[in-house]
């Protein structure tokens, strides 16, 4: 994966767009995300079911990876079993 890649969950409806970072294996609901969704969905691993929210950005603790959730689902995002964090949004006034 690299910036611009769309990753899909194999266990729920989640889809994310890679904004920053490359090479990592991102998991959703505990299972690696893929570019082509399988015909039969798998099941969500316990502990990875907090869900994803559309429009939210997710980052790893090192700050090298950033994902934008473009379709929400029940699984939650992780890398190597370590949950990704919601990125803090710093609100700016509308300028257009």
């Amino acid at each position: 994966m690299k910036p611009g890649t769309k990753l899909k969950s194999t266990v729920c409806g989640t889809e994310v767009m890679v904004i920053r970072g490359s090479g990592a294996v991102v998991e959703c609901g505990g299972a690696p995300m893929v570019e082509e969704r399988p015909a039969e969905p798998g099941s969500i691993k316990p502990g990875f079911a907090q869900g994803t929210q559309i429009g939210k950005r997710y980052v790893d603790t090192a700050g090298t990876l950033e994902l934008l959730c473009v379709k929400p689902g029940q699984g939650s995002l992780s890398i190597g079993g370590v949950p990704l964090q919601l990125k803090d949004a710093k609100p700016l006034p509308a300028s257009d």
Partner: peptide, 8 residues
């Protein structure tokens, strides 16, 4: 993405 939060 840098200036707007989705659905804000």
């Amino acid at each position: 993405l840098g200036t707007v939060e989705f659905g804000s």
